[in-house]
């Protein structure tokens, strides 16, 4: 399922002293089955942008075309769009409300009008995807679980809707490193299994770099550049000037290049840096 955003502008509190232009003439296309990262610091407009994608916010001007349908058109039923575009909010565990884990995850599929058997299958699969043991946890209250488990229940609730487009707004913030890596891995598994379109909103460069095919960088309500992680992380100065960092490895490579050491300039993982530095050390020895 593809998404096209055309000339999107959004103004909060228009005509009041608090008027803020949150998005300004944003144009972006996301292809069906693509896994993209949307980064930018707080206030850059990334959350505002993703809330447009399933019609939670209506643009001040511009169009959002989901699979060929302009969702800003008044005749479009937003409930149809929301079935297809699933949104995992920041701190989604704050939205848990049911008595049991099972009921909480089943809530979305129930509203899709599925049969009990289908709902049961969906809940089981969603729990399997986020690695929550079904028999052990299905009857537990979600409120008794650990932070990482609660987060997974909330994410499973959206997974169970089988959205064709999955938008996750900072899904790992506040998680410890191990849980963070596991949750990201689970999102990747879902993407690999269903080839759905995934939009991952984050301010963690390291997370985004590991997973996505393309990074879209936002600043002050605009998309300032986009490209593969490799291309984007070369822009150390620009990223820093807009309050974002790059992986520590990128800084190292830059510092070494400044010392006149001839290394590739598009390295951002430990693995690649190791290869490149070993190559340099060994080539020197051979001279």
């Amino acid at each position: 399922m593809s998404i096209e955003v055309e000339n999107l502008t959004y103004i909060y509190n228009p005509g009041s002293p608090f008027e803020t232009k949150a998005l300004e003439d944003v144009n972006v296309e996301i292809k069906s089955g693509e896994f993209v990262g949307l980064i930018g610091h707080t206030g850059s407009g990334k959350s505002t942008l993703v809330q447009h994608l399933n019609g939670l916010i209506k643009p001040t001007s511009g169009k959002i075309v989901v699979n060929g349908i302009d969702i800003t058109d008044k005749t479009v039923k937003l409930s149809d769009i929301r079935r297809k575009v699933g949104l995992v909010f920041q701190y989604p565990e704050h939205q848990l409300f049911e008595e049991t884990v099972y009921k909480d995850i089943a809530f979305g599929p129930q509203n899709l009008g599925l049969t009990e058997t289908e709902i049961d299958e969906r809940v089981r699969e969603a729990m399997e995807l986020v690695k929550l043991p079904f028999d052990e946890l299905k009857d537990r209250s979600p409120f008794e679980l650990s932070g990482g488990q609660k987060r997974r229940v909330a994410i499973a609730g959206v997974f169970a809707m089988k959205p064709e487009v999955l938008v996750l707004d900072e899904p790992t913030s506040g998680l410890d490193p191990r849980t963070r890596d596991e949750v990201l891995e689970e999102i990747k598994t879902l993407h690999d299994r269903y080839k759905n379109t995934v939009i991952l909103v984050s301010h963690s460069m390291e997370d985004v770099a590991k997973l996505v095919e393309r990074i879209i960088v936002m600043h002050n309500g605009k998309i300032i550049f986009q490209g593969t992680p490799r291309d984007v992380f070369k822009e150390v100065e620009t990223l820093e000037s807009i309050g974002l960092g790059v992986p520590q490895i990128s800084y190292l490579i830059r510092a070494l290049r400044e010392k006149g050491i001839n290394l590739k300039d598009d390295i951002f993982t430990v693995e690649e840096a190791k290869k490149e530095i070993l190559k340099w050390i060994r080539s020197r020895k051979n001279v």
Binding site: Q248, I249, Y251, A255, L256, V270, A273, K274, I277, I281
Partner: peptide, 27 residues
Amino acid sequence: QITDLTNELIKEGIDLPKDILTVDEMV
């Protein structure tokens, strides 16, 4: 990441101190 990289390079037989923490030290 720098410490991780140091550890990997030591494993490859490069003579580095184990306790490098910052970009500057590594350079």
